[in-house]
Structure formats: C-alpha cells, structure tokens
Design a protein around this nucleic acid. Structure first.
Length: 761
RNA sequence: GCCCCUGUGGCGGAAUUGGUAGACGCGCCUGACUCAAAAUCAGGUUCCGCAAGGAGUGCUGGUUCGAGUCCGGCCAGGGGCACCA
C-alpha cells in the first residue's frame, strides 16, 4: 500500500532479545517497590486456565475466551498501579489531545471517591472474641442519623470469627461464596443478610445500638469490607431493610418537600436537599453536614486515635500480571525453600521459555517441565524452582513504543538519550477498545520506567486518536457455517435482498452488521481492490468518504469514482506539463483575472487541506482536492488560443505543483509520477509542504446571504469593506425584500460583517 | 440502574463552532459523442408543487434578529460502568 514504515526498527515482543529487557525492568520495578506478590481473589478463566485482570473481564466473561469468569484465591504478582491512582487521574486533564471520551472512561475506571473512615464501637458482650470496634468506610457521613444496620462482607475477619461460633452463620457465608463464583449470578443475586447478634454503638449516641449483619453484597476489597446502612438514601440498603423489616428514616429532604410527610418506601433518595431528623445537623446542606460529622469525629478519640478519619478511595486495583500460561514473558524469579523469593541475577537474563513443551494437557506446560522448572537457588545454591507464571501480554505492549526509539541497544531496555528525545509519541492511533486496558497500563508503565530510570517522562502519548472499526454484514449457511463476503453474491434491494453462495448457488442468510473478525468470516481483503485498481485508488477510496474516527460499513460502492479520479489527475498532469513548456520560469509581476482565479483555487484548497489534514479529517481534504482539480481542469479547458498567456501558464504550473503535493499523502505513487511528468527531478516525498499566500484568500467583493425573518431570500454582492449603512440601503432596495416588506419599513436590520444580513419585517 | 456519545437527502457524509443546511463522493435522471455499447464530457438530483411559493437536520417545547449547532423534556441506536458503601 506504500506505507512508509521503518522496518529496520522492527521488533517482536516474543523475542528473548525483547523480553530480556522486560525482565530487567520487572526486577528494577521490584527494587523500587512497584512490584508486589500477594494472595488475592482473582478472576479465573476456566477455558484459558489463567488469571485475568479486572479490565480483561467483560460482562463477566474472559475478554479472549468469552467463558464465564470464576473467582479463585491465588498468590499472584502485581504491579502497583494503584500507587499512581491520583497521578493517573489528575494528569488526564493535561492530555488535551486525547478524546474526551477516553479520558472520561479512564476517570470512571480509576473511580476516586472521598469519604470518611469511622470506627464504630462494638458491644463487647455480643462479639465472638471480645472485639471492641468495627471500622467502616462511607462517602455519606451526613446520613449517619439515618443508620439502621451495619453490614460485613462474608470475607470480613469479624464475620469469620463470628461464624466459628455459629454454624448457621458459617453455612450462610459458605452459601454467599458459592454464589460468588459465577459472575452472572452476582448480578441477579438477591440481597441477603444474616444477623450476627453483634451490636454496634452509634458514634453520636451511646444508647443507640445497631445490629451487625453479614451481607452478600458487601465487597471485602473495597473500603474496609464493612458499612453502615442508611436505607433512605441508598437503594441497596433500602432493598436490604425492606427484606428484614428494619425501617428507613429519611435524613435528607428534597427541596420543596415537607419534612413532616416525606417518607421513603421503595425508592431511595440520593439527590440534594436539607438535613432532617438528624439532631445537630438539621437544616444543613449535605456538604455542610458531611463536613460537620467529619470534624466532630476527627476530634473525638478512642484509645489514642481518632474515631473518624478522612480517606480517599479508588476503584482502581493493582494490576495482577501473573498468567498461568506458556505464551508470555517468564517472570524472572526463583523460589527457594531457604531464601524465599529470589530475583534471577541480571547476568542470567533472559530467562527463556523452553521449547520442548507439550500442550496435550490443560494448564501451564511450564509447571510440568522438570528441567526448566527445577534450578539452583542463586543465593544458597540449594534446590529451588522457577516461578512458572508468565507475564500478562499487556506488559509487552506497555513499553514497545519506548523500545522503538532504540531497538538495537542490547545492554538496557532503553537508551535514555533516545527515549527522552523521541517520546512522548506525538500522535498515537488505536481502537477505542484500548481505552482502559492498553492505554492505562502504558501510562502506568511510563511512570514506573521513569522511577526506575529507564525514561524521563510521565505520559507516553501526547496525542491520541481512536479510529473506528470496519464492519460488514455476516452471512451464514443453513448448516450454520459462516461465509465470506467474497464467496457470496447479494442481489435485490432493501427488504428483498437475498444472498447465495457463488460456488453452489445455495441460499445464505444475511445476518447482522458486525465488526470484521476471523471467526465470523465477514472480512474483506483490500488486496482485491489493489489488484484491480492499484494501491493509490485503494488508499484514496478508503480515506474519501468516512471520517476515520467513525465505524464504517464496508462497501465497494464508489471505488470506481476513486479510480476515475486517478485517471483525471493523470490527464491533468499531462495537460499542465504541456502548458509548462511555454510557461515563464520567473513569477510574473501582474496576473490576469483568469490567472488570479486559478491561483485562488489553488491557495484556498491548500489552506483547507492543510488545516483538515492536521485534524485527520481526510474525507474533507479529499472533497477540497476534488473541487480544486475540477477548477484547474476547467481553467485549462477554457484556454482558447494555441498559446497560453505567460501569466496564466505560470499560474497553472504553480497550481499543478500544489495539487500534486496536496494529494501526495493519499496517493503517493501517482503523485510521484505526476511530479516527474511536470518536469521535476526531485521526489514529492522530499519536497516541503507548499506555503499559502494569505492575500489570495481575501476576496474584494463578497456575496452576503440576505435573510428575511431568518429565512434566506436573496443574495447581495458588495465590496469587502462596504459600510453597514451602505449594505442596509442596498438590501432594502432588493426586490425580494421590498416584496416581503410590502411598503412597510423593517423593524430591524441586522448586518453581521462578512457574514449575513437579516431583515426583521 | 448510573454515566457518555450519536441521530442531517436514496446512500457515505459536509457545514468556518450561533450566520446561505445538504459541500464532496456514490447512486439515479437528462443530454453530447457513438451504428451501438463502454469510457469520457456537460447539466440536473432534500421533499411537496407545473409554477409562484412552502416545508425541512429523530420528536417536542424554549432562548435568539437568526438554531443541525445552545437549554429543558421525550424517542431510537451505540458504548462504558455496575452491589465500589
């Protein structure tokens, strides 16, 4: 297709020469405290037999396998992306050349929430082991007087302790965990609770006791795994109390509601309002009440520390990178019974994947490869074993752009001079599907590389553009097999469209329009167009209609038009070359009206294309090139005499040169040919972009639309610098205006300079 | 459920950011060239109407001299998040 790629920089992330550096960075990140090994509940893909990050679970299914994801408890390696939660969030504001949509998605994913940690005292008589307090996290401390219950996650230590003494509770917790394994069930699960018998004390009223439940909708890994429930203002809590009959006292009254009659039944109120039923908070706004509660609880102490503490929580979790699969970069760690977790010494890098592996059984082949797995401990030389987890392949793509700046260096992941000179990437282009996965990981990785000394910047991509997907109809045979568009003949129109297999004539069903994929076989091969019409026509055609950020429904309708245009440009180049023979080399001092018209067409097209190409509005660029080519063709066609006047000849040569350079980015091969035809010895690719002459964009007379009551009724042509009064007088003399006014004088005449005139009748 | 985006001719899509709606291309129609066809060239093509004229950017109300563009309420399609306290 004539793409200009520097293949000398080609790299492969599966090449040990690449992942060697990745292992080095893993060890460096470990040194600076950005890698951690911990037990955690993980998303387990039962088909791929591997762990998935939260970001890789889509609607409860594995992003690759599509299988329902299960929860498992495993020891895993993590990159501490959450160290950068705040930075990753605030730095989004500075990424002004990123689509707002992507920034918003990342903001939501990071999910910052500000709230208060509150230590509730427990009635020790009621606790299993004399526990005296329970810490909860809330973003709504203002609703503390609406509290009806406390709730613990089934995984909360206090729940575990209570269950040890209460078999019924233990059974309830076991039931919760069973439901918790299938993601789909979680979404539909009813809110269930179990009263532990434990009683908590309200922080503002020692005599106010709250029952402590274990509830299936409380997550252990957010906040403290425990909450206080305010049913009137939280729908989940309301659903819960309505099941257990605990009641709901409203503490926030919506504007215009009478506090005396305001009640909550089945819908919680989470809007704005004034505090009610809340003692010293009554009458305050929500914000004032939050502040007041925080202030009071911060001051109050129990056992040498404050009862309340402000805290900011993030939804963003650390990035679990352990994968139990063969295809990935081995994690350069050795486990020794004596020394524990030992990093592989740098001189032993890379840890290469063994090649003699078998895939006959499910699970990780590295796990059952004795000679690879069993090694000596680098510290004590005793028997040890390798870490058999490999890294998530998203790690590979989190820094390849940095490696591109110097892919040849063997002694380090990056050459600091190179990486700092080249990065950040000026314009990154990718699909919206990477909005949080790849783009958030890369932002973290760049920061981590900075901390470990491998780069000097925070943000990898200064400009981001998300291109749309190419979509196409799907075709399916009676036996349920997918057919490719090239194998199918489609006839008829609208509701009568029908499709048959070209080979057999068998009828096929026309299915929905979907993203092109190998599995649905709804792909088209640009080689077909390239084969018939050439690469330039294919490029032009693909760029011409649809803006690149939108999805396109692929059709070859219109490719003929693109091909026709290449012919026209070719003819035009030859016609211009003929005129060039007699054109003066020196720029004429004076230009005729015809010559000026040609120059204006050239320079205004140049101005438009320059602007639109920077915005990646290629379809609009192409429209302007069509117009310009038409104007130039007309100008050449209008030459009557055998000998073209020298000034016009010069203008045509100038215009042809501009035209070729304008379409060169879209049709490089044709442009080079045309350039040579025009007599140039250089390559267009090596030429500079032409300069606009701004004075050619200014018109001496302008045509203003004339509206009557906001509807266009006429045009008027006036000198560019005509005064308002002159324009108004000319407008009122127009027939269309006189007719509309019917002898009366207008209420108002609005003259917007250089734009429009509106007569209000 | 919450958040976000999109909605313009027969089709893909333009519209200087509040100022001529439908650029440009496809398709279609008419004409020229031709014995004929293809190619090429010229003209037309939002809808209603023979015309004068009128209506018109998903629906509906508003702000404004003026709204595809801004605001409110709906409808439809797409995307993201979802027991995150």
């Amino acid at each position: 297709m004539g793409l200009s790629l520097d293949w000398s920089r080609e790299l492969a992330t599966c090449d040990p020469a690449y992942y060697k550096h990745q292992q080095k960075m893993f060890l460096d990140f470990l040194k600076v405290g950005l890698v951690e090994r911990k037990q955690s509940k993980v998303n387990w893909d039962p088909v791929d037999q591997t762990v998935l990050a939260n970001e890789q679970v889509i609607d409860g299914m594995g992003w690759r396998s599509g299988a329902p994801v299960e929860q498992r408890e495993l020891t895993q390696w993590f990159f501490k992306i959450s160290n950068y939660s705040e930075d990753l969030l605030t730095a989004l504001d500075k990424l002004d050349r990123w689509p707002e949509k992507v920034r918003l998605m990342q903001r939501n994913w990071i999910g910052k929430s500000e709230g208060l940690l509150v230590r509730f005292a427990l009635d020790a008589k009621t606790t299993p082991g004399g526990e005296s307090e329970l810490e909860i996290f809330t973003t709504r401390p203002d609703t503390l007087f609406g509290a009806k219950f406390m709730a613990l996650s089934p995984d909360h230590p206090l729940a575990t302790a209570a269950a040890a003494k209460n078999p019924k509770l233990a059974a309830f917790i076991a039931e919760c965990k069973k439901i918790g394994t299938a993601q789909e069930a979680i979404e539909k699960a009813e809110k269930l609770g179990f009263d532990t018998g434990i009683r908590a004390v309200h922080p503002f009223d020692p005599s106010w006791k709250l029952p402590v439940y274990v509830a299936n909708f409380i997550l252990m890994d957010y906040g403290t795994g425990a909450i206080f429930g305010c049913p009137a203002h939280d729908q989940r809590d309301l659903d819960f109390v309505n099941k257990y009959g605990l009641g709901a006292t409203p503490v926030v009254c919506p504007p215009g509601q009478d506090p005396a009659t305001f009640i909550i039944t089945t819908t919680a109120y989470d809007g704005d309002g004034r505090m009610i039923n809340s003692r010293f908070l009554d009458g305050m706004s929500i914000e004032e009440a939050k502040e007041e509660v925080a202030k009071r609880l911060e001051k109050e102490t129990r056992g040498n520390s404050a009862v309340g503490k402000r805290q900011i929580n993030y939804r963003l979790r650390d990035w679990g990178i352990s994968r139990q699969r063969y295809w990935g970069c081995p994690i350069p760690i050795i486990h020794c019974a004596k020394c524990g977790v030992v990093p592989v010494p740098e001189k032993d890098l890379p840890v290469e994947l063994p090649e003699d592996v078998t895939f006959d059984k499910p699970g990780n082949p590295l796990d059952r490869h004795p000679t690879w797995k069993n090694v000596k401990c680098p510290k004590c030389a005793g028997a040890a074993r390798r870490e058999t987890d490999t890294m998530d392949t998203f790690v590979d793509s989190s820094w390849y752009f940095a490696r591109f700046t110097d892919p040849w260096i063997t002694t380090a992941p990056t050459d600091r001079k190179m990486v700092d000179a080249w990065l950040p990437v000026d314009q990154y282009i990718g699909g919206i599907e990477h909005a949080i996965l790849h783009l958030l990981y890369s932002r973290f990785f760049t920061r981590a590389m900075k901390k470990a000394g491998h780069a000097g910047i925070d943000e990898p991509f200064a400009g981001l553009f998300t291109q749309g997907m190419v979509v196409h109809e799907t075709y399916r045979t009676k036996s349920g097999e997918w057919a490719m568009p090239s194998e199918v003949k489609v006839e008829g129109a609208d509701d009568n469209r029908r499709a048959t297999l070209i080979a057999t004539g068998e009828k096929v069903e026309i299915g929905s329009i979907e993203k092109m994929s190998k599995s649905k076989r709804n792909t088209v091969d640009p080689d077909d167009i390239i084969g018939t019409y050439g690469a330039d026509t294919a490029r032009w055609f693909m760029l011409s209609d649809s803006p690149p950020d939108r999805d396109v429904n692929w059709t070859e309708q219109g490719v003929q038009g693109a091909w026709r245009f290449t012919q026209r440009l070719w003819r035009l180049a030859h016609e211009a070359a003929e005129i060039a023979k007699s054109a003066p080399a020196k720029r004429p001092v004076e230009f005729s009206a015809e010559a000026i018209a040609v120059r204006k067409a050239a320079h205004s097209a140049l101005a438009y294309v320059s602007e639109d190409i920077a915005k990646l509005h290629f379809n609009v660029c192409i429209a302007h090139i069509y117009e310009f080519a038409k104007a130039l063709g007309d100008a050449i066609g209008n030459i009557e005499s055998e000998k073209t006047p020298p000034d016009l000849a010069w203008a045509i040569v100038e215009a042809a040169g501009i035209l070729v350079r304008l379409f060169h980015p879209m049709m490089p091969h044709l442009a080079e040919e045309c350039w040579a035809t025009l007599g140039y010895k250089t390559l267009v690719a090596a030429e500079t972009w032409p300069q606009v002459e701004p004075e050619l964009l200014v018109e001496n007379t302008i045509t203003l639309p004339v509206q009557i009551n906001g509807k266009k009724r006429a045009d008027i042509t006036v000198p560019r610098d005509a005064g308002k009064d002159d324009i108004e007088a000319a407008v009122l003399a127009l027939d269309a205006v006189k007719r509309a006014l019917d002898g009366k004088s207008p209420k108002k005449v609005i003259v917007v300079p250089q734009r429009i005139v509106n007569v209000v009748a």
